[in-house]
């Protein structure tokens, strides 16, 4: 590549220098995000440790089918986006837009399933912690704690996904204007990192929410 000729911000030596720096910056941001979600993981460990039976009883109330379907959706979405990155590196803008659009639609599907259907049912079944909480008796305390974790974790993951939808939409718009090519695709790659990270977080949340509590 004849880097020197490509446009780049004045503080960089070359376009390649700028692109690789942007990618490094996103990775560092993701490292920061790991710690952000880490607090939730630690809360999960501590709350489950003190109230195992109740915590697991709460987990058994979750909708495993929707959760699993959502996991499949996010993995597929992430795969489509990765394909898009590969396409733009071959300067195929049309395919990039198609892949991103699919990734975007799948992301939206996740949100609808999660918040439109699953949360809706959870709330209807009085699974939001509070005086009218559905589970009573000894297991109530632990189950409420589980649902605190559940609602906070899924809401924050949902917000990240929503931000991701905005970013992917932005990529589609810029690609539509023909701004990306094999020479310049940094924003596509950087947003891709974020998109896959959101997927990653869900992959870890999935067993914490749906699987581990479903014991005998």
């Amino acid at each position: 590549m004849s880097d020197a000729a490509l446009p780049h911000a004045f503080q960089y030596e070359s376009a390649r220098h700028q692109a690789r720096t942007a990618i490094a910056g996103m990775w560092l941001f993701l490292a920061s995000e790991v710690l952000f979600f880490g607090v939730l993981f630690l809360s999960w460990i501590v709350c489950r440790h003190w109230n195992q039976a109740g915590f697991d009883a709460g987990a058994r109330q979750t909708a495993l089918a929707i959760g699993t379907l959502n996991t499949v959706i996010l993995i597929t979405s992430s795969a489509f986006y990765t394909a898009g990155v590969a396409f733009i590196e071959a300067s195929n803008t049309r395919r990039l837009i198609q892949c991103c659009a699919l990734a975007w639609v799948l992301g939206l599907a996740f949100l609808i399933l999660k918040f439109g259907i699953e949360w809706h049912e959870d709330l209807a079944r009085h699974l939001f912690p509070g005086p009218r909480f559905a589970i009573t008796g000894e297991l109530r305390t632990g189950a409420q704690l589980f649902f605190v974790f559940y609602f906070v974790a899924t809401a924050l993951h949902g917000l990240h996904l929503l931000a991701g939808l905005g970013l992917v939409g932005w990529i589609i718009r810029r690609a539509g204007r023909g701004e990306f090519s094999a020479q310049y695709s940094t924003p596509v790659a950087v947003v891709g990192l974020y998109w896959s990270f959101v997927d990653m977080v869900w992959i870890v949340l999935f067993p914490l929410i749906y699987l581990i509590g479903r014991g005998p």
Binding site: L28, A31, S32, E33, L35, F36, F37, G38, V39, L40, S43, V152, L156
Partner: peptide, 13 residues
């Protein structure tokens, strides 16, 4: 970069 997000999430909780 690595400590502040922990505070942020703690404040959310």
């Amino acid at each position: 970069v690595l400590a502040t997000p922990v505070l942020a999430m703690t404040l959310v909780l």
